[in-house]
Write a protein that binds this DNA or RNA. Structure first.
Length: 469
RNA sequence: GGUGCGGUGGCUGAGCGGUUAAAGGCGCUCGACUUGAAAUCGAGUGACUCCGAAAGGGGUCCGUGGGUUCGAAUCCCACCCGCACCGCCA
């Protein structure tokens, strides 16, 4: 959520920001509603103040009279009752007005909140302006020794690549038909070495974050309440992307949603808390199953392990003080951890600075990391794919947008600090999402005969196995 | 699923119709004592929001939402969450 005060002071900044991101929130209406709402509220507050003052004066008086009532005779009783009624009349009138104002405010509120929640965080000024992912800008790329970016896979390796789909079938690593039989389109079953490799990469990524990079390991719920989805900024915008467990319809108290990333659980941890500055930064890592409806992606990437409804992901999250420089440093660090991991796996990859149009509501800045996937890209006359990058990671910097929604604050000023409570900054980044990351691993480590060499770093996680097929 | 109890400030915990933003304790801040520290003593210390340059003032908040009442943390209803015991299942 954006800062309403900041919006009042400088609406243009948010109008421009939304435009750069290709969003069209009705900011004018919001400002109007905000003004109306505040006018009504201060009117109501004035009445309340008067009411409070009055009841402070008359309250004890009524109490005293009520007491006397039981002690006196019939004649006095009548007199006292009359006095009580008189005293009661004044605040009763005020109550009517207050209730009426209440109703007016309640009428404004739903639209007001809906617009406020939908206003995107303006992108940072150093984020390139653009409309689609086409406008993203490559920052850097890396490949292991022996890989020449100017040459095709065949020229590099001396043989034509097989796609991960072919390779998985060859070695019985994935059973697509049965996955579809059980769970429908975009479903799969990892089998044998496929499942082993999947577990190996997840465990390797997770262990690295914990043991080398100092992250605290956590488990998280993947079935969550709506508040967690709204709080982390995925709702209302991304409602279509989440599976919805309709518990209310069958008599339950509330509906639930399957999370599309461990970020929801990790960020939800400290919802509504005031943290001690000395606790920060919090660095969490989790591995969780992720669910995505892929609504709107019909017909896109239908084959293989690239775009699927369910996968597992190691996710890193950092929560720290509201300091832009620190946030930027965390962002770099978190990307560094991924690069380190990809280098240790020998996977060619690049960093892409996402343009404003590709950011989504909650990000001020986002960098995607893409691995080279030989089976992607265009196909030549010979039916050989050109290879292309495929997104495997996404590193987001959100300032306080998410923590504001989650009401996650800290007290600045050192131990037990005395400063005004401040919303934290948050960041998140993928560490490894599998099976998608199996695509570059399998395809880049294939040999001419179709066998697959296990990347050295994963061998310990494969019980010493060095080869598939 | 059944029964019982409970959800109050950064934490703990009292209050159970008006004098309650809410005792006490812990924590924290400042001060005194001390060579320094600990201990001790004294003072202070909720969040959010509106108006204001500030000083200051107003309002809201005792799980959430309704209701009763002139007035609700306190009474009533619904829901959410937690704990204990029983039952059932792993």
């Amino acid at each position: 959520m954006i800062d309403l005060k900041a919006l009042r002071e400088n609406p243009q900044r948010f109008i421009d920001g939304a435009k750069k991101k290709n969003y069209t929130p009705d900011i004018d209406t919001l400002l109007k509603l905000d003004e109306q709402r505040r006018a009504l509220m201060s009117e109501q507050e004035a009445l309340r103040a008067e009411q409070n003052k009055l009841s402070k004066e008359t309250g004890p008086r009524i109490g005293k009279l009520m007491n006397e009532l039981s002690l006196v005779g019939e004649v006095e009783k009548k007199l006292i009752k009359a006095e009580i009624d008189q005293i009661k009349a004044a605040p009763a009138k005020m109550k009517e007005q207050i209730t009426a104002l209440d109703a007016q405010i309640a009428q404004i509120e739903p639209e007001f909140n809906a617009i406020l929640l939908s206003i995107p965080l303006p992108p940072d000024d150093d984020v390139p302006v653009g409309t689609t992912s086409e406008d993203n800008i490559e920052i850097s790329r890396w490949a292991p020794e022996g890989w020449d970016w100017d040459k095709s896979f065949e020229q590099n390796k001396g043989f034509k690549p097989r796609s991960h789909i072919e390779l998985c079938e060859m070695h019985k690593m994935v059973d697509f038909p049965r996955g579809v039989k059980i769970a429908g389109s975009r479903s799969y079953i990892l089998t044998g070495d496929g499942m082993k490799l999947h577990q190996a990469i997840l465990r390797y990524a997770f262990d690295t974050m914990v043991a080398q990079n100092g992250f605290t390991p956590m488990s998280v719920p993947v079935l969550v309440r709506e508040e967690a989805m709204v709080g982390t900024g995925f709702f209302p915008g991304g409602r279509d992307q989440a599976y919805h467990i309709n518990e209310v319809e069958r008599g339950g108290g509330y509906d639930m949603f399957l999370t599309g990333t461990g970020e929801v659980g990790l960020m939800g941890l400290h919802q509504d808390e005031i943290l001690d500055e000395s606790q920060l930064p919090l660095k969490y890592v989790t591995v969780s199953t992720c669910f995505r409806r892929e609504a709107g992606a019909a017909g896109k990437d239908t084959a293989g392990l690239y775009r699927i409804h369910q996968f597992d992901k190691v996710e890193q999250v950092v929560i720290d003080v509201a300091d832009e420089a620190k946030s930027r440093q965390h962002h770099r660090d978190m990307m560094g951890f991924v690069e380190q991991l990809l280098k240790s796996l020998g996977l060619p990859h690049r960093l892409l600075q996402c343009c404003t149009g590709d950011l989504g509501v909650k990000n001020a800045d986002m960098v995607d990391i893409e691995c080279w996937m030989p089976s992607r890209g265009s196909v030549d006359a010979d039916d050989t794919p050109s290879g292309d990058f495929g997104e495997t990671h996404s590193a987001s910097r959100l300032y306080d947008y998410q923590c504001r929604r989650l009401n996650m604050r800290y007290r600045p000023g050192g131990e037990g600090g005395k400063g005004a409570t401040t919303f934290c900054h948050s960041l998140n980044n993928t560490v490894a999402a599998s099976p998608r990351i199996l695509i570059p691993i399998i395809e880049m480590y294939q040999n001419a005969d179709g066998s697959i060499t296990i990347p050295e770093a994963l061998v310990p996680y494969m019980n010493g196995q060095t080869r598939i097929g």
